[in-house]
Design a protein around this nucleic acid. Structure first.
Lengths: 228, 228
DNA sequence: GTCGTATATATTGTCGACAATGTTTGTTTT
DNA sequence: AAAACAAACATTGTCGACAATATATACGAC
């Protein structure tokens, strides 16, 4: 399945490449959450100068994946349950509004494309039910398309450019495998229908519920894990 | 009036100082919107090296005040009516949610402090009615307090750390002098009441209307200016 | 005279070294 | 032995120079 990721523009400079590598490593936990980052060490590992490493770190800071204190250094952001909840609440606000705007601003062609995508998901889901990875990819693609459909550059930048990296990080590190695939698919369908009807108010409401449900699902899972 | 600005932490490094100076100059238009930034020239002007200037530029990029293209350079962000609308729509989503969270998470002391603030505004407004500068400052302080009251670090970072610089830039450059002072004050009071009642849903609704009204007010003003 | 190409210029990206600040270790004092 | 201070160390911040890329200028072909 093609992951239509709007954040990834071809890296031209070496700082770009290092940024992408570090982004990947942090998101999937190869570089553990909370780790102190040693500039000299990392620079040596990548065989680059500290200047270009710092350039890469600056971009990671932009998506809130590393935090820097003056004269002290950088750390990979710490993953916490509180942080996760805060993130999802922010998502609820932003993606809800993006969905409302999408209902107003998406072209008919874009809507058509979404409906086709859902049809594909339905088929692939019917075939390999339970295999959640594809559903995960599909879920991300679905949300990206709606955000882009808002045609609001501010929303697009904030959500795709910074928030989503953190979302993916939490998903992977907390081992969220989208346990509610069929339910989520149903919700996706309702949302697309609202957009097709150009009903922005309903579209926003449904998206907010969708994300809130996802958050509660994750909260429950974590609560279960803590009980074990 | 003390401007309780949560973004301004004491600058320790020279890059911090240059950042703050540039931030100020860009927001108030001393460095015009859309200007190409020449690194060698700016570095010479501030009598610093290009490295530390680039550090400052990176932070400006974080709040979407400058945009950089690889191997080409940086420009001050362009102010457009579309951009303004997109910004206010984003504000509506984020501050609306922040207000809902504030209703849930603000301490009684924080609420008390807001009520006192409003009382001060009421008095100062009654005295020097029409002098909108204080009202402007007061408005910013009001919104900051609510955002901080959400106790949601993600929302606080996005809104105070990046969005608000742009908001202030648009306000100044488009010459918005808050023509609806008394109306805005009334809306502020209603919002604080909803928060005091711990009615998150209403608080969010009112904040969204408040920002939407502000946006429409600005749009009208711009339309009038274009007619002249 | 205009378009295309090639050279020259300027700007950005990257590098290694030095200065300033934080942190650790070792010593001294109570 | 614990606390306080001092010195050695490591890390981050800043600098100036070089390399790679983009832009501007000059020249030549049609």
């Amino acid at each position: 399945m093609a992951t239509n990721n709007p954040t990834r523009l071809d890296p031209v400079t070496t700082a770009d490449k290092v940024y992408e590598q570090l982004l990947h490593d942090i998101v999937d936990g190869t570089i553990a959450s909370g780790t102190k980052i040693s500039e000299p060490e990392l620079a040596k590992r990548f065989e680059i100068s500290r200047s270009t490493l710092r350039e890469a770190l600056n971009r990671l800071e932009k998506c809130h994946l590393v935090e820097r204190k003056a004269n002290v250094g950088s750390r990979v952001v710490e993953c916490s349950i509180e942080g996760l909840i805060e993130l999802y609440i922010t998502r609820e606000a932003l993606e809800g509004m993006a969905c409302r705007q999408a209902a107003a601003n998406m072209t008919d062609a874009e809507i058509e494309s979404m409906q086709q995508m859902l049809a594909t998901h339905a088929r692939s889901q019917a075939l390999k039910d339970g295999i959640s990875y594809y559903q995960e990819e599909g879920d991300v693609d679905f949300h990206y398309k709606i955000i882009l459909g808002s045609h609001n550059q501010q929303l697009i930048n904030i959500i795709c450019g910074q928030l989503y990296h953190l979302v993916r990080m939490y998903r992977i590190q907390f081992g969220m495998k989208s346990a509610r695939a069929s339910r989520a698919f149903q919700e996706h369908s309702q949302i697309v229908q609202a957009i097709a009807d150009r009903d922005g108010e309903l579209a926003e409401l449904l998206m907010r519920r969708h994300i809130a449900a996802s958050r509660k699902n994750i909260e429950n899972k974590i609560a279960q894990k803590l009980e074990q």
